[in-house]
Simulated assay, not measured.
Amino acid sequence: MTGAPPGRPKSSAWRHVVLRLVFVLALPVVLVTVWWVASDGSEDVYWPPLRTIVSAFPDVWTGERWRGDVLPSVLRLAAGYGLAAVAGVALGLLVGSHRRVRAVCEPVLEFLRAVPPPVLVPVIMLFAGIGDTMKIVVIASGCVWPVLLNTVEGVRALDPVAAETARSYGVTGVARLKDVVLPSAGPQIFAGLRQALSIGIILMVISEMFAASNGLGFTIVQFQRGFAIPGMWTGILLLGLLGFALSVLFRLVERRVLGWYHGLRAATRR
């Protein structure tokens, strides 16, 4: 028995991909075009034409600067973000799973969450110095809260039927955590991780503006102090491109880890 394989036809699939690219790229193209046209001919020192910024990009961000500034920033971000992810999920599982622990910890967590992480930079410098440790701790101290609080809410929202079924079949301990709790709280955990990623980029830049000798934040401030305004704007654009690339990478990881969840949502829409 022969016939067309099930699924979407190739022409329809290609049309879907093209439309998706149009939707993704339409607004950035419009914004860049508006910026290019609006800034063209500008003689303001602090608002150079976009063509000047773009032409300065390859001269500013050479291979040496990528190794000396961009790579250290990304490594600090990865270390702080990874530390916050592990600590946030672990503490969130503990607090969310035990009512008494949650009752004891909730006031303290709410107090600490309300303290802006940039305010803690001078305090952290007293204990961790001015090296990479300080910057990693600053990033982790801000990223941990979205992960922690979303994990707590995800664990608390565990389906009572699933919890009772696991209890009936004797699924306890690590098996219950791995097969019941984490899959159920997974979408909420990834929501917190997504929020933490943008916070981490902001704190990466802020931490590098304090007593630093390299990094994206340090370089942008140096350009500003030296009145190298096109170079400063190239650093800002590079930060935006870095954030976009990390967001795309995060989405790919999320799609792979939560494939069952996105598949279920897609099925319910049909």
Rank of each mutant, 00 (worst) to 15 (best):
2 T>G: 15
10 K>L: 15
13 A>L: 14
17 V>C: 10
17 V>A: 15
20 R>C: 00
21 L>M: 12
24 V>T: 14
31 L>R: 04
32 V>A: 15
32 V>H: 05
35 W>Q: 06
35 W>S: 06
43 E>G: 12
46 Y>K: 03
47 W>I: 15
49 P>E: 05
55 S>H: 03
61 W>R: 04
66 W>C: 11
66 W>F: 14
70 V>F: 12
72 P>A: 08
90 A>C: 14
94 L>C: 14
109 L>S: 07
110 E>R: 13
114 A>H: 07
115 V>M: 10
120 L>N: 06
123 V>D: 02
124 I>H: 00
135 K>Q: 10
135 K>T: 03
136 I>C: 00
138 V>H: 00
142 G>K: 08
142 G>A: 02
153 E>P: 09
158 L>N: 04
159 D>N: 15
170 G>H: 01
170 G>L: 05
172 T>Q: 13
175 A>D: 13
175 A>W: 09
176 R>C: 10
177 L>K: 00
181 V>L: 10
183 P>I: 09
189 I>S: 09
192 G>R: 10
193 L>N: 09
195 Q>S: 13
208 E>N: 03
210 F>P: 01
215 G>Y: 08
222 Q>H: 00
227 F>K: 10
228 A>I: 06
229 I>H: 02
235 G>Q: 02
241 L>I: 11
243 G>M: 00
245 A>L: 12
247 S>I: 01
254 E>C: 09
257 V>R: 01
258 L>H: 00
260 W>T: 07
262 H>S: 04
262 H>R: 12
263 G>F: 04
265 R>Y: 01
268 T>I: 14
269 R>E: 15
